[in-house]
Amino acid sequence: MKLVYFSWVRERIGVAEEERDLPDSIHMVADLIEFLIGHGENYAYAFENAQVIRVAIDKQHVPHDAPIGNAKEIAFFPPMTGG
């Protein structure tokens, strides 16, 4: 699974993207966030206020209870500030 990060989520984690094998126990976005938090302080810091983090599966916005299914790419980022 390709994971990509933007803005301060990227800065806190320390990489812009990575490939990870996910265990079968991960069904939805929220499970993935919990899984990542267990992988180091940088992830715990990025997701310390997990409810504000926005998620996109294959470049479409999804809520945290969305199923991951056969996603190719999952993105995590803060609320957007364009415009």
């Binding site: 803060p78 500030t81 415009g83």
Partner: peptide, 28 residues
């Protein structure tokens, strides 16, 4: 279009300060 762009289009602004100090990310 502007209301939706600001809240849904994946862009993020980081500040570069004139005094050279580390700038922060603009908050939504």
């Amino acid at each position: 279009l502007m209301d939706y762009l600001k809240t849904h289009a994946p862009f993020w602004k980081k500040e570069h300060r004139a005094d050279g100090q580390e700038g922060s990310w603009v908050e939504a």
